[in-house]
């Protein structure tokens, strides 16, 4: 009976690891392998491939053909590091913008009467009911030179000729901030809503103005939510492809777009794989840091 029980336990605990192995680690190794391969006019478009008929010699030959050429290429061509840097910049700035817009929203939600909070929460999640792609496309209608925004501004007399927003980086920022705002608001709201009102009153009682109480009590206690929200926005934003493709212009450089071009336009799978591997490594740094932070939080018992 004990053995059966421990087998069941093993299966239970093992399932997520098995899942990660099959759907993350294994594909990653395939991509990694392709990144070490060479471009070829073939199907699939790279060499070498595993040839089991050659036996041991075939395996040796296979490994001898792998090299890091594609990685060195990434450093030689300025396009790639420019794409990385530009992605990093766009992701960082849009994360900051999302935080600046999301914080007041989350704060107002947490201060709203309890009976409205569930409704407000639902309104935040509401956009998810429509396809992401359609929502991004809808921004074209708003931002294009003859779109709603320009028409409204012209009608109000604020501008006398249409603003060029679509197909610029500004449109990309707008698209990212709009799309990822719920991911910022939800963790922020969760941490703000938990803050005991009496803590603010205690700070006021001990001599803080309302603003000071916000700075020394509310904000520090919202830090876990701020960090979680920033990661939830930053990590997908850095690899974002759809938004720069639909709203961005020719000068919009993002690594997701570069990756797409390599894969589908140039059909250079090895270089594209190298780009993807480097992106993953870049993202590992903030993810590991985030994990460290969470561990610290757990230890602190909050």
């Amino acid at each position: 009976m004990g053995k059966k029980f421990s087998l069941g336990r093993l299966a239970f605990i093992g399932t997520p690891y098995f899942w990660l192995l099959i759907f993350f680690l294994f594909p990653f190794f395939i991509v990694f392998k392709i990144s070490l391969s060479d471009l070829a006019v073939a199907q699939p478009p790279y060499v070498p491939n595993f040839d089991f008929s050659e036996g041991w010699n075939g395996l040796l030959l296979f490994f001898s053909q792998l090299d890091i050429e594609n990685y060195t290429f990434l450093f030689e061509d300025s396009l790639y590091y420019k794409s990385y840097l530009s992605s990093l910049q766009i992701a960082l700035l849009s994360t900051l913008l999302t935080l600046l817009i999301g914080f007041p929203i989350a704060y107002a939600m947490s201060k709203a009467p309890k009976r409205f909070q569930a409704l407000l929460l639902m309104l935040i999640i509401l956009p998810f009911w429509t396809s992401f792609l359609i929502r991004v496309y809808a921004w074209i209608g708003i931002l294009k030179p003859e779109g709603f925004l320009n028409q409204a501004l012209l009608w109000l007399g604020i501008i006398d000729k249409p603003l060029i927003i679509l197909n610029t980086n500004i449109a990309v920022y707008i698209g990212i901030v709009y799309s990822y705002l719920p991911f910022m608001v939800l963790p922020l709201y969760a941490s703000l809503e938990r803050i005991d009102m009496s803590l603010i009153e205690a700070a006021r009682d001990l001599g803080c103005s309302a603003l000071k109480a916000f700075w020394v009590v509310t904000l520090p206690l919202a830090v876990p939510g701020i960090i979680a929200g920033c990661f939830l926005v930053f990590i997908p934003a850095i690899g974002e492809f759809v938004i720069p493709d639909v709203l961005g212009g020719s000068e919009t450089l993002m690594i997701g777009k570069t990756l797409w071009t390599e894969f589908f336009n140039n059909r250079d799978w090895p270089v594209a794989s190298a780009v993807a591997v480097i992106l993953l490594l870049l993202l590992l740094i903030p993810i590991l840091w985030f994990q460290k932070f969470q561990e610290k939080q757990m230890e602190a018992g909050t």
């Binding site: 005991d196 009496s198 803590l199 009153e201 205690a202 700070a203 009682d205 001990l206 009590v217 520090p220 206690l221 909050t302």
Partner: peptide, 14 residues
């Protein structure tokens, strides 16, 4: 010049 001791103590957790 009045201070209060709260029922929940309201100690700053951070």
């Amino acid at each position: 010049p009045v201070n209060m001791m709260f029922q929940s103590y309201a100690l700053f957790p951070h």
